[in-house]
């Protein structure tokens, strides 16, 4: 991702966001106790500095809170469908799988969004990412026609695009 417009405002937002994430992580890891706060403060300061240090700095990505709010229930519902689908096929008298492979060209532009997309494909019903290079994801499907698999993947891609503020990307 070329750093075309990293303004001071974006930087400040990023700093606050990371601070909030680290604070909640510490609170969770410490199971809500407050007596070790000074130790937590040192660790959080170190982690914050480290997260901006060159070897760990990642390409900035844009994401949307409303996109996330819409994504989470969709993801949970689809996960349950995915698990149920596997259970049905596993417990069936004869194993009912008709696997196929296909390559899906994604419209997502940000590298982080593409990696996220490839990972979520594996957690959703009937699909498994087997490779990701440039803008192409190779998908192994457990069953279903190619058109069905493509339609499901396209729906997921649209959700991921919403999550990463790339509404124009998914067609």
């Amino acid at each position: 991702m070329p750093a075309n417009s990293i303004s001071t405002q974006t930087r400040a937002r990023e700093l606050l966001l990371r601070l909030a994430v680290l604070l909640s992580l510490w609170w969770v890891l410490d199971e809500g106790r407050a007596d070790g706060w000074w130790f937590g403060a040192i660790i959080i300061a170190c982690a914050l500095a480290l997260s901006f240090a060159a070897p760990f700095a990642r390409a900035p990505f844009r994401w949307s809170i409303t996109g996330a709010a819409r994504f989470i229930p969709y993801f949970l519902y689809e996960s349950i469908r995915g698990g149920w689908d596997v259970a049905r096929r596993a417990f069936g008298g004869a194993i009912r799988v008709e696997p196929s492979m296909l390559t899906y060209a994604t419209h997502l532009r940000q590298p982080t969004a593409r990696v996220f997309f490839a990972h979520v494909i594996s957690l959703l019903p009937g699909t498994l990412s087997t490779d990701l290079r440039e803008g192409e994801v190779t998908i192994h499907a457990l069953a279903g026609t190619e058109a069905e698999v493509r339609a499901g993947t396209r729906a997921l891609e649209a959700r991921v695009a919403q999550l990463f503020h790339e509404e124009g990307a998914a067609s």
């Binding site: 996960s79 349950i80 995915g82 698990g83 689908d85 596997v86 259970a87 596993a90 594996s122 957690l123 959703l124 019903p125 009937g126 498994l128 192994h140 457990l142």
Partner: peptide, 9 residues
């Protein structure tokens, strides 16, 4: 497929 989906759930 079986491992990733069912175990996460």
């Amino acid at each position: 497929h079986a491992l990733t989906k069912a175990d996460n759930l």
